[in-house]
Every structure is written in structure tokens, then in C-alpha cells.
Amino acid sequence: MSALVVRAGPVSALVERRALVASCVLVAAIAGLALAALCRGDSWDAPGDVLQGLLGRGDSAVIVREWRLPRVTAAIVFGAALGAAGSVFQNLTRNALGSPDVIGLDAGSYTGVLIAITLFGGTAAGLATGALAGGLATAAAVCALALRSGVSGLRLVVVGIAVNAMLTATNSWIVLRADLDVAIAATGWQAGTLNGVEWAGLRFPLIVIGALAVLLAALSQGMRQAALGDDVAAASGLGLGRFRLLAVLAGVGLTAGVTAAAGPIVFVGLVAPQIGRRIAGAAGVPPLPAALTGAALLLAADLIAQTVLSPVQLPVGAVTTVLGGGYLCLLLFKEVERG
């Protein structure tokens, strides 16, 4: 059999062998990249010292645990959140282009953040609220605009790309009009960065993302069912209206949680679900491989961002943009060829 049956008391599941192996490989890759990232300082530290430091022993304990670990944790959790959010929207739109960053949700969350900074100052809760409100408003706007001419995945994507462009322009305008100190703070963030991430700033986003991950796990069966098409999903007992609402909420919330903490990190949500499903050999675009791939991707991108122009640290968003831009072009070509 190519699948394993798991049954214990009220719990039962069928686990595809290929997906299980792929998940283990991805987790190992994440662990390896995380160790490398923990070793990465002004120079590379020996892994043995770093592991000692991680356990609170040796000279490097403070550096590893207070400086590098938050950043590595952020890269893993944010990458996973972006990948999972991408899989939610690619499932909903049934289109590989339908990811939050392409349809403007990152930009919308960032607009919310900018408004929160300029109007209310930059408290963590204010930023998170701004990001979530901005993301939800954008999602509502994109859906409303796409619905007017009938729902189809590609139409929603095209409308989303247009909304994304308008929001990006709006964001630049807000930054130009803002006071100098606000503008400087905002631009430092515009590309999405993990530079200077600390535990204190991570607490709130981690709680939000953790809660939404639970919601997403609860929705994953419905997501599999929805992938069969609206008619089959509804006829087999999926309440489509409620499912879609919760899925959009989870997807927007995950994106907004990341944006509030690190700014808009684009393209992870676009690329990770597609790579993940190929690695897992899965049907449709399942969220777990997408999340694991997203974590590995963002860790790798952040390592590159710290290394290529060292000692200058690039924002990780710049690296994901370069990596993802090429992929987006490829997808657009394919989409156009398909008609």
C-alpha cells in the first residue's frame, strides 16, 4: 500500500507514504537551515559552540538565544504562515497565481500598517490590527470587484493584480506624505525584513499565527473537499459559505500577522504551495507541505539576505522578490498559453 492507516480510539486517518516522507525531508531541511542560520553572525561560528549556546552554556549563549534564535524562529514561523496562506488562496481561486501577495493582500495589510503608524503611532497591537483590517478590506474589495462579473479564478487574480498595483502606489503616497521619522521607519520595512527581530516583538504575531494555524488545520478536510469543485463539495456536505469565510479569514490573518511583524514579504505565498505539492506528490494544494516549504524557503532567503552583501544586511523581502519574480513570469506565460 502506498498509504498508512492510523487508528487509535476515536482518531483515524489515512497517511500517504509519499507525503509522510516528504514532510520528514522538509523538516530535516528546515532543521539544517536553522542550524546554519544560528551559526551565521559577523563570521560563521562552529555548530558545536552554537548548540552549546542554545542550551545556555558557553560564551555565545546570549548571542544565540537572544539575538539569532528570534530571527530564526521568525523565519520558520513566518515562512510557514505565508506558505499556508498561499495554499488557502490558491485552493479558493483554484489557480496557482491566486496567492495573497499577487492579489494584493500583503500590500493591503501594509497599507493598514502605514495608516496605523501615521494615525495611531506604532504600538504592536495597533500594527497588528491595522494589518488585519487592511488585509480583510482588500480581500473584501477584490472579491466584490471580481464577483460583479462572475466568479472565476483567473478573473479574481487579474482584479487582484490591479488592486495590488493601486495599493502599492497608495503605500508610496502615504510614505511620501508622512512625517520624516515615520517615513524612515516605514520605508525600512517596505520590502519586508527580519533584521532586528526580537522576542518582545514576536510574541503577539506568534500567538495570532498559532491560533490561525489551528483554525487552518480544522479547515484542511474542507479544503480537500472544496478542491473537487463547488458542486461536489456542497453535495457531499461542505457548507461552502461558512467554509469560504473562515478560509479567507485564516488566509488573511496569517498574511497580516506576518506583515504586522516584518512588513510585506512577497512571493513565499506564491511559490511555496506549488513546490510543496510537487515534493509531496499531493493532489490539489495541501497546506502542510506548503507551510513546511515556506519555512525552508524563508530561512534560506534570509540566510542569502544576510550573506550576499555582508556586512550589509539586505531585507529578506528583496531576496524573495528576486527569487519569486522569475517564477511569477513563468506562471504568467503558462497561464497565457493556456488561454
Partner: peptide, 28 residues
Amino acid sequence: LVAPENMVVRQLVARGRYPHQTLLSTWS
């Protein structure tokens, strides 16, 4: 009807069990 890409037959047939499944029990 169009099945999602990559789906094998037994997986598709198993989707018919959706109304009988719960969050914890997906393959009784």
C-alpha cells in the same frame, strides 16, 4: 467533473466519505 491534478482513484473515491467523517476520524 474535473478531479484535482495528481489525484489517484482511491483518493477520489474516499472523498465520498466526507459527510461521515469528523475532525479526528478521517479514515474509520
